[in-house]
Design a protein around this nucleic acid. Structure first.
Length: 552
RNA sequence: UGGGGUGUCGCCAAGUGGUAAGGCACCGGGUUUUGAUCCCGGCAUUCGCAGGUUCGAAUCCUGCCACCCCAGCCA
């Protein structure tokens, strides 16, 4: 089940364990900011953090990093929990919020002030930026850098008391304005923000910054390995500085790994939020999005995402994973147990001229390799639909489908031969006429006929209308740089076809339309995309097509 | 021109001095009432480049090159 994984993080953990360095065992945390929905990049982190804890008998905190009330909300807190659960992970009792620690954080900040390691700076944001220096030039000390401890304590208390407006003052660490690492040039620790917080309400009007908050929360929770992405690498000295300069007896190591890059996708929450807000997609759960909500609505099983994250591995290398790997994982997850059904997405009418009388009911397995899944009933009759692409009046070489004079097997039913093509006045193929061979019934075929191909069909009397939505990539290039220019405005294809009525008895919301792909019943409703709520017609989202190795 | 990272097959990725795992993709072949699945086989004399150390280097040393990240009172 769980292969022995040997990425650099797990190797490190094994070493720590061997050396007896972990008194409390393995403790990890997944620290999302509740300002958007989770995407498959977060899934990589979730699988890593929860996976590692599971493998080494440790525990994982779900800790919301809610230090910026101007962007965060309860709605996102809920959706994130739902998504993590759906992915298959459980934090149990270990649900925390950075805001749970606001009181302690405040005390730690005061300690820093008393020790002369932090000061209240009253420069404007603009002035501060100007004095920060550049990548190659050192910054200049703030004129407020040498305020007395007493003044600093007083000012900080009054900041908290609400005496000042947003931006009037800020609490800064007193480190080194000449540091080549810009994060160490007296970084801001607290800012004034008169904003109601979704958990603490109006109790605070100053909020701690990430760099000050995160490391302390990690220490307070006894995180044994604080795993984050590469862009925090040069924040690590600050992470360590804070913990080294306050009175705390635990110091987690921060270990960075590279974020997931996925072809034809964008993994930036900012960009995703923008697509949602501008109505370019149908909400956070648009099936074209790499969000967990979107993947779920598309029909991607959580197990496929977990498998994908495992196959992708964990390293420090920048990467852009091929979308084909995800597609492979999805097909593989669905192959073994997804019920089969036949659906004709672009119907071509077929008349079986030698079929007389009552419709015939046939049996077909829900899954050809899983007989224990049982059978479904299928109807064969005089009027049928086949896929337009399964007929050609000018077949290419090695065409194994139907063409004038040729024979083909209708899956789980009879062999037919095309006798005639009926055309419209303008010459388009309107329907075809065929004869069937009564002694060629699937299962007891005594005809001796050997057609070269098998195609799917739906009997007109057994057909239920179905609307099918297929999705292309949201972006036109594998590695979109300009999300507006590279946006694919034409990524949804909607067709109306027929599905065998047995679909109603399908033992799963996931289904394979034979020879076409895996589909998932869409039951959410919204404006942009069609949903199941419209009329009584069925709506399916194509999760992924079947592999197709046919090359004419 | 500062600091921090990363460079192993088309894409991921093992490997940490002993002579290049694996997966995906791709290409052959077999089975097949899904051109699916499944099965078999092929696919890096070479590890960014150049030197050096060593009996032996993807792994050690030196120098180069390329790419990514950092100048929010965001996380």
């Amino acid at each position: 089940m769980t292969a022995d994984l040997h990425d650099f993080i797990r190797n490190r953990i094994r070493r720590d364990l061997d050396e007896g360095a972990l008194e409390q065992g393995v403790v990890t945390r997944f620290p999302p900011e509740p300002n958007g929905h989770l995407h498959i990049g977060h899934a990589k982190s979730i699988c890593l953090n929860f996976g590692v804890a599971r493998e080494f008998g440790g525990k994982t905190y779900l800790r919301f990093d809610d230090t910026n009330p101007s962007k965060e909300s309860e709605e996102f807190v809920r959706s994130i929990q739902d998504d993590i659960n759906w992915l298959g992970f459980d934090w149990g009792e270990n649900l925390t919020f950075a805001s749970d620690y606001f009181d302690q954080l405040f005390e730690f900040a005061k300690q820093l002030i008393v020790d002369g390691k932090a000061f209240v700076c009253s420069q404007s944001a603009d002035e501060m930026r100007q004095n920060r220096g550049t990548l190659t030039e050192p910054g200049r000390d703030s004129p407020f850098r040498n305020r007395t401890v007493a003044d600093n304590v007083d000012l900080f208390e009054r900041m908290r008391a609400g005496e000042f407006g947003d931006g009037a003052h800020v609490l800064r660490a007193r480190i080194d304005m000449a540091s080549p690492n810009i994060n160490l040039r007296d970084p801001v620790l607290y800012r004034i923000m008169h904003k109601r917080h979704h958990r603490t309400g109006d109790r605070w009007c100053i909020y701690p910054m990430y760099d000050f908050t995160h490391c302390i929360c990690d220490a307070l929770e006894g995180i044994s390995h604080s795993l984050c992405t590469l862009e925090f690498e040069d924040h690590r000295p600050l992470y360590d500085w804070v913990l080294d300069n306050i009175n705390i007896n635990f110091h987690p190591p921060q270990i960075e790994f590279s974020r997931l890059g996925l072809e034809y996708n964008v993994m930036s929450k900012r960009v995703l939020a923008e697509l949602v807000d501008k109505g370019k997609v149908d909400g956070w759960s648009d099936p074209r999005l790499p969000t967990l909500a979107g993947l779920r609505r598309r029909g991607v099983p959580a197990s496929a995402i977990r498998d994908f994250c495992q196959r992708v591995g964990v390293t420090k290398q920048d990467n852009l994973v091929e979308i084909k790997l995800l597609e492979f994982c999805i097909r593989q997850a669905l192959e073994a147990h997804t019920p089969r059904v036949m659906a004709v997405l672009e119907p071509l009418r077929v008349t079986v001229t030698n079929f007389e009388g009552e419709d015939e009911v046939l049996d077909a397995p829900w899954h050809p390799q899983q007989p224990e899944m049982g059978i479904r009933k299928l109807v064969f009759g005089r009027e049928l639909f086949i896929e337009r692409s399964d007929f050609s009046d000018d077949p290419p070489d090695k065409f194994k489908r139907l063409s004038p004079g040729a024979m083909v097997r209708l899956r789980y039913a009879y062999i037919i031969r095309c006798d005639e093509v009926v055309r419209t006045a303008s010459g388009e193929i309107e329907s075809i006429q065929v004869t069937y061979f009564p002694d060629s019934r699937s299962g007891d075929d005594t005809s001796g006929l050997k057609p070269k191909g098998v195609i799917h069909f739906v009997a007109a009397s057994n057909a239920r209308r179905v609307r099918v939505q297929s999705f292309g990539y949201l972006f036109r290039t594998p590695n979109p740089k300009d999300v507006h220019q590279d946006f694919n405005d034409n990524s949804v294809t909607s067709t109306e076809g027929f599905v065998e009525s047995g679909i109603a008895q399908a033992p799963d919301a996931h289904v394979q339309f034979e020879r076409t792909g895996y589909f998932y019943r869409d039951s959410s409703s919204s404006e942009g995309l069609e949903s199941d709520a419209i009329g009584d017609s069925l709506i399916f989202n194509r999760t992924v097509s079947l592999r197709d190795s046919w090359k004419p």
